[in-house]
Write a protein that binds this DNA or RNA. Structure first.
Lengths: 304, 304
DNA sequence: GCCACGGATGAAACTTACTTTCATGAGGCG
DNA sequence: CGCCTCATGAAAGTAAGTTTCATCCGTGGC
């Protein structure tokens, strides 16, 4: 072999390990011993110091360096980094994903956590995928230009409604939420053209919310529905319909994933509205942050 | 460390980056500069030498070493290796624009939606990864056997607290939530051995919540903290600490992703408690569903 | 106002890891 | 046998990482 030719030098496709085992035969005996260790357990090799690895391969540090150069690395540290990365990448996904959705009786906490997180994350992602940006845009426009915004929701969706109200309020929009149907109806009766009413209902069948939204619409307000079911009754009283994409399973009847999906939609609308008037929103946010500042205690340092 | 609570100890299961960002506020200013560089681009940091990184963070090598120790590493080389591994494992984000987390001025709705959904889903997944099932188990045990459960939270975390309360209530546990500090303090004063108090605070620095939790603990109740920052003050008054793993960005200061992460944890605990006594929980759920039935209108009319 | 204290910080000393240089010696070949 | 080549490790040299320590700054007592 001539003067150490840079073999497939800078770029070794298909992984460093493969690359190394490929040119194993072309290496000198001492280098081969190093190579074999590396290939056998990349993660372990990455943890070792050069002296350590040299000893393990029954050779000197110099040879390890030569080996590094032979496989196209600049030096030992680079090899280490690359090996660590390689080893991490080839780690198998933890185990058969807990896809099913429902939680088997006798499941342990780790299983429960994995299942819930998987479904929650899925709901968020799928919701985002099916959200229509054009409709969102119109809703954002309406909210951004509204004189007043009413947000309705009952039960679990009530929290989401309340959250949305708080968010809008924090960026200086006039928004209301009513935990009580009667108050909500009263408020809806006072809405008019240029106002916006948002109704949130996972099932889309919550009569209280539908009723209030209907009232708001009758008064000329722009109505928005947020539901998981695009053909549910609530959509009939809404000018704009936004849908979530949560697939609830029996045991999770508390509408767990749907709540997260709803919140994601709320976040999108919120950021959309805020982005519409950056300066003002930013100022309002800063003011509200300042307001609660005295209720924060200094962050801890090292425990002592 | 005297009475340190049970945080997911020295091991950082769900990913080093997440772990570091959680610790960020508890680090000294100079260390924070290092941390931010590392979190912003782990792969790049892994490539740098300690001197290089120190210079980039406008500090000394000593501080970088201190940072390594602060996040649980033996030294810089180990950090490098771990970072490289971490960076490699990270799946390519769907869209480069979406990664930063922050929303560029002039972004359109589609972009906003993608960004938020990505970050929300991430927060949920990463939270699940770093949740310690053993600690969850203990918390579930405590809640499942509690005479009474108080859930505290202020601002955005208040919704989560309220949601948790409602969930527990629906499966027949005696749970309370108080939107008002004074009422909460009064309630905490009445807690005793065998009761459980759960405090929720994203930052972990909300004095109201800390105060109430402290009171509860003084009365002999088991205290649980749910926060994004494992070294924040709230952890000092908690017997059990559960952490979320949300990386909020400037514009999302409303703690958007963190809220979803918190809800995921709440869901896990809820299902855990419910699973502990399936029969009873199921019966309670059915009863509550029946109760709201009259407020539902006939499902899914065909669109007219 | 002053002082003591404790934590944060970087300069410099120090240690360890990495890299280079160089001498040695084992084969190969005329 | 002498010469060449080249793999190899010892040792020297350099760079990276780690520790120590003096300084600085803010904080809280007196």
């Amino acid at each position: 072999m001539a003067k150490s030719p840079k073999i497939s030098a800078s770029h070794e496709p298909g992984g460093l390990i493969v690359h190394i085992s490929g040119l194993l035969p072309s290496l000198s005996p001492a280098e081969q011993r190093v190579a074999r260790l590396v290939v056998a357990d990349p993660a372990d090799a990455a943890r070792r110091t050069i002296t350590d690895l040299a000893t393990a391969a029954e050779t000197s540090e110099a040879t390890v360096i030569r080996f590094c150069r032979s496989v196209g690395m600049d030096g030992y540290p680079q090899l280490r980094i690359r090996l660590a990365a390689e080893a991490a990448r080839r780690i198998e996904p933890p185990d058969a994903r807990v896809v099913g959705g429902d939680i088997p009786p006798g499941a342990d906490l780790a299983q429960i956590i994995a299942t819930i997180a998987f479904n929650d994350a899925r709901a968020v992602e799928e919701t985002a995928e099916q959200l229509d940006p054009a409709i969102c845009e119109q809703v954002v426009e309406a909210i951004g230009g509204a004189g007043r915004i009413d947000v309705y929701g009952a039960g679990a969706s009530g929290f989401v409604a309340s959250d949305f109200q708080q968010k809008l309020h924090r960026i200086g929009r006039t928004a209301f939420y009513f935990p009580d149907v009667h108050t909500a109806l009263t408020s809806a009766a006072l809405l008019g053209r240029g106002d916006v009413a948002v109704g949130i209902s996972h099932t889309g069948t919550t009569s209280d919310v539908i009723e209030v939204l209907e009232q708001a619409r009758a008064r000329g307000a722009t109505t928005v529905a947020l539901t998981n079911f695009p053909r549910s009754p609530i959509t009939e009283v809404a000018d704009f319909v936004l849908t979530t994409a949560a697939r609830e399973t029996t045991y999770r009847s508390g509408a767990m994933a749907s709540r997260l999906a709803q919140l994601t939609v709320v976040d999108c609308l919120f950021v959309g509205v805020a982005a519409r008037n950056r300066a003002r929103a930013k100022k309002a946010l800063e003011a509200t942050a300042e307001a609660v500042k005295s209720h924060r205690v200094g962050a801890t340092r090292r425990r002592g």
